[in-house]
Each structure stands twice: as structure tokens, then as C-alpha cells.
Simulated scan of single mutants.
Amino acid sequence: MLLPTLLQKVAYASKPELVPIMELSGVGQGRARQLIQAGYISVKEIARTEPLELVNKLKQLNIKQAKQIIASVKLVLQEKAEALREEADELISL
């Protein structure tokens, strides 16, 4: 179900570093490019920033959008961390 969406994003992305950022809610190719040009080259960097800082660096972004992007990043990172914890638990139980 997610594969066609991901393949479409990869096909349109000229830079591989855009793909993880484009997976965030409310972030398309244009916004991902803006984030990278503003110095946010990973989702971790976006998660560490404050909404106002994001708004100041991306002039076309409003505070509500900034909060949504940061919340989306934190959710994605939380899900990845949980998946890693589950995988570690499985390995430990072997």
C-alpha cells in the first residue's frame, strides 16, 4: 500500500536525501527542498528545532505548518525507535 507512494516520491526526487523528509506529513518535494536549503539535512535536525526558528528560515511557512512538520518528525522517529526496541527485544529473547 505504501510502496506506490514511496516509489512516486523517489521518482520525482532528484536527490536521495529528499525522500526521508518527503515522508513527513505536509511535506512535498518543494518543502523538502526548502528544508534542505535551509540547512535541515535530516529529520533529526528538524525534530530538534523550534517552530519559530523553522518559520524564520522558511519564509513561506506559517507557525501552524511548522508545528505540524515538527510533530510529524517526532512521530516518525518515535515509531522507528519503537520498531528498533521490538527488534532488540526479539534478538535478546533468542
Rank of each mutant, 00 (worst) to 15 (best):
V73R: 09
L3F: 12
Q8N: 15
Q34A: 03
Y40N: 00
L91K: 01
M1Y: 15
A47H: 08
L94C: 05
E45T: 06
M22V: 10
L84K: 03
L84E: 15
I36F: 07
I70F: 07
V27N: 06
V19T: 02
L77M: 01
Q65S: 12
A13D: 05
G26Y: 13
A32P: 11
S14E: 15
A13E: 12
K67Y: 09
P20C: 10
L2F: 14
V19K: 01
K74Q: 15
M22L: 03
Q37H: 02
K74N: 12
A11S: 14
A66Y: 04
Q68W: 02
E53L: 12
A47Y: 13
A11R: 12
I69F: 09
K74I: 07
A11P: 04
V27I: 12
L2V: 13
Q34G: 10
A38D: 14
G39D: 13
D89G: 06
L94K: 01
L3R: 11
E90F: 06
E87Y: 11
Q65T: 01
V19W: 07
L3D: 08
E86S: 01
P16N: 12
A81H: 05
E90R: 04
T5D: 15
I69G: 05
E87S: 06
D89V: 08
A66C: 06
I21H: 10
Q60R: 11
L75M: 13
V43W: 08
Q78Y: 04
G30M: 07
E79N: 00
G28S: 02
Q68G: 04
L58D: 08
L77Y: 05
L3P: 00
K80I: 08
V43P: 02
K67H: 05
E23P: 03
E45P: 03
G28V: 10
A71H: 09
V43M: 04
Q65I: 11
G30R: 07
A81N: 07
K59G: 03
I46T: 05
Y12V: 08
L58C: 14
K64I: 01
Q29T: 02
L7N: 15
V76D: 09
A38T: 02
A38S: 11
L84F: 04
L84I: 05
R85I: 09
S42F: 11
A88M: 07
A71L: 14
A83M: 10
E45A: 06
G28D: 09
S93V: 03
S72L: 04
Q8F: 05
R33S: 10
P20N: 12
L2I: 12
I69Y: 06
L52T: 03
K59Q: 14
V19P: 09
L77G: 00
T5R: 07
A71S: 14
G30P: 00
A11N: 14
I21M: 13
A47D: 03
L35G: 06
R31P: 06
G30T: 08
Q65P: 13
E53V: 09
E82P: 07
P51Q: 00
V76N: 03
